[in-house]
Design a protein around this nucleic acid. Sequence first.
DNA 1: CTGGGGAAGGGGCCC
DNA 2: TGGGCCCCTTCCCCA
Length: 612
Amino acid sequence: MVSGPLSLRWCAWAGRRDMGPEMELPSHSKQLLLQLNQQRTKGFLCDVIIMVENSIFRAHKNILAASSIYFKSLVLHDNLINLDTDMVSSTVFQQILDFIYTGKLLPSDQPAEPNFSTLLTAASYLQLPDLAALCRRKLKRAGKPFGSGRVGATGMGRPPRSQRLSTASVIQARYPGLVDGRKGAHAAQEHPQAKGSDEELFLGGSNQESVHGLGLAVCPAGGETGLGGCSSSTNGSSGDCEQELGLDLSKKSPPLPPATPGPHLTPDDPAQLSDSQHGSPPSASAPPVANSASYAELGGTPDEPMDLEGAEDSHLSLLEGPGGQPRKSLWPSAPKKEWSKKEPAAGSPFERREVGPKGPCPGEEGEGLGDRVPNGILASGSGPSGPYGEPPYPCKEEEENGKDGSEDSGQSGNEGGSGHAGAHYLFWQEGYETVPYGDNLYVCIPCAKGFPSSEQLNAHVETHTEEELFIKEEGAYETGSGGAEEEAEDLSAPSAAEPRPFKCSVCEKTYKDPATMRQHEKTHWLMRPFPCNICGKMFTQRGTMTRHMRSHLDLKPFACDECGMRFTRQYRLTEHMRVHSGEKPYECHLCGGKFTQQRNLISHLRMHTSPS
DNA sequence: CTGGGGAAGGGGCCC
DNA sequence: TGGGCCCCTTCCCCA
């Protein structure tokens, strides 16, 4: 730890004779901050997650609250904070977080000196007066007008939605360590800017202490806080003392086995880098280059396994259950490198995220792309079947075992039981196995057109206006029929009282408002716009993804007053409280049995109805 | 060992 | 965007 200088100074202090109320350990605050910063970099005792541009930062509520009124108000009620990416980018926030913890404005990952304009904007947004003042001084000194650096606008107004949508989803770049922490040192040699994150993110954690860990104990801080000095010793980017941008899940996630030296991402495939648009495929307006830019920004390296392919081992390990208990196999460990190499030069994380999960099952052959599921396409309806995200499509193995699409759809198709889910699985198979798309592996579901790259597909998807989607439904969706009928049977049932003028273009479901209808229609897409930046699982709704993230991060904001048990959802807490209250509102009309959970009643009813 | 119930985790989806 | 609800699933306990 820091006992060396600390104890020396303490001795000097203790030797003083006038140990009056003025006693002060000169370096106390500094050391304290150092410790806190060190803890932050290791995720130790971090109790808040800040998401910026899909990058995740961990920090301590106390520190944030002490630094900013804004943060104070945020962390009071939330453990997961999303910052306005218009006001602060992940890179800038990294600097800000460093500043908060060190009082120093460290060089960013980028070679250029900090953009004080953007920093000022962010500092103003985050209500960090000291930092804002510092930036103003710098700008004043440089003779630059204040607040000109912000993307979008200088003021607090938000840029047009279209601009905001261009925010890069670069989270993958933040997780190289999740992928293979062991390669951190290696990567750092070639790409020093990547070192910090890699090391820090190392899941096993075995080497992060010595190599990275801010070097608090080893950095010759020279009386300074150490961080600045260390970090500046590198190429102005991260360096040993640079703090990682990402999140060390090893602190909060279930125990993980030591990271295995998984295959590195092939450096020749920058296409595997995260696309910036996967957060909003229908609005995939940003050019793919944003991806690489973000990637470079983040200190990512071409061989960082940003995608799940190189990362499969580690990502799998991420998904292990508590106590290292293996969860259901998430993704088969298949030779995905070849797959990735053959992958069309597409940057969308749809591909990247799906490549892994969608890889062939063990033993599955026929790796030719022509036989493969196009990366960018995910049968949304089929969805990840198991709670731990089995491949959203049944692999052959599963099919052979009877875990076919029907079961899959049955699981995921919640809407009264798999209506369109099954239909989409069907479509998936059709598109996947029989439709001769040739090289156009990225298929637009609404119109069944194939595209050679996800970018093109995304661009095409954008051309589908809502109207088109409505109009096209009848003819274009060869898939819709079965599922639609099923759904029509048991799902729609709109109440006659409520007019529901908005009808899904795929199935028969109707909605009161177009937004909901659009939201629903996304469930028919083969693409899931919202990837979990930790495990890569894809979701159709951002909220679902966020909720899913909470489970990764072990964020359980809802605590039971009675027993202290915590839950990720309010509803769960409500449900749980019945355990204490004894309330059993769900009664079986057949036997009178009462249940605290409706799902248990349903399960119970099945017992009644199933042939015994 | 098995089946049923209790409790909980997680995803889908509508509002 | 989050809440709420539905569904599937799992784990544990107990008879």
